[in-house]
Computed example of a mutant assay.
Amino acid sequence: MRSVLICHASDAFDREGLAAWLASFTELAGVVVLDETRAQRRARVRRELRRVGLLRFVDVVAMRVYQRVALAGRDRAWLKQALATLRRRYGPAPDVPQIMAADVNDAKVLTFLRQAKPDLVLARCKQLLKKKLIAVPKLGCFVLHPGICPEYRNAHGCFWALAQRDLDRVGMTLLKVDAGVDTGPVYGYYRYAFDELNESHVVIQYRVVMENLGALATRFAEIAAGSAQPLDTRDRASATWGQPWFTRYLRWQHAAARMAVP
């Protein structure tokens, strides 16, 4: 089974750790590394501002500032330790062809994928894939979505499940990409015993991946063998969720602290 990984340049957990993991049970044929431009990041900010309005956008910015000041140091320390664990488990990042791009849908990325001829693509990126790219791998493009779909779509599903106190849906979804936003076939849900008082939602999102790598490898093998069938998600609530809000973070932490009191 040939695979290609798509990830962001700044994410060593994916670029090194998950690349080595993929190479442990597939033939990793290449890595697409996304290095976004400032213009792309500004465009994402403008989209969020239009989506939520000025007042709520201040709430989003406050969460970003708090995360950078109060949480980012611990998150980086955890990620460094996690990457060291992955290196011990799977070895260093494999020496395979790579391509750098700002846009995952760039024509050169499409050419790279067609030349690599992957059976599956694992997309660990914030950008949406267009139909031409989705159609390249024989088995499809897959994402390890943070949160349980379809209830928690978009990139911050774990945060919103925690904020909603929907603790049974704090986890990860193995999702096959289609033309929508996290609306494709679901091939599995994965969880672990998270500690919401001592683990940030960022750590939870990464750790749920790390704790389930063995099960995910087995599932991909079943997909390749044709024995895995998507789960039935019809008649379930479906919602997209945006960036985390500081006010909801404070409410989540207060509720979590109250639950911890004997």
Rank of each mutant, 00 (worst) to 15 (best):
R248V: 00
R219P: 01
Q98M: 13
P230M: 13
R236Y: 07
I99H: 05
D14I: 01
S10W: 13
R15Q: 04
L18C: 07
Y187E: 01
T37V: 13
L174W: 15
G226K: 03
L71H: 07
Q98D: 03
A217M: 07
V209I: 15
D182A: 05
G30V: 00
L128S: 09
T85V: 09
A123Y: 05
R38P: 01
M172H: 13
A62H: 03
D235R: 10
G17Y: 12
R46F: 00
L55V: 04
D182Q: 09
F25G: 06
Y66I: 01
D95M: 05
V60S: 00
Q115H: 08
R169S: 06
E151N: 09
L34M: 09
Y187K: 11
L5W: 10
R42V: 00
A72H: 14
L231I: 07
Q253D: 12
L5Y: 09
R114Y: 07
Q115W: 04
F159G: 06
Q40P: 01
W78N: 01
F142R: 14
R46K: 05
I148W: 13
L5D: 09
L250F: 04
G184P: 06
W245K: 05
W78G: 00
A93V: 02
Q81H: 11
D106S: 09
E16H: 14
R114G: 05
I6C: 10
G30P: 02
G180L: 14
F246M: 13
L28E: 08
V45C: 00
A43H: 02
A9Q: 14
F25P: 05
R234S: 15
K131T: 06
P146D: 14
V121P: 10
I6Y: 11
G73Y: 12
Y152S: 04
H254I: 06
A123N: 13
Q81C: 04
R234V: 11
F112Y: 09
P118C: 08
V143L: 13
W245C: 02
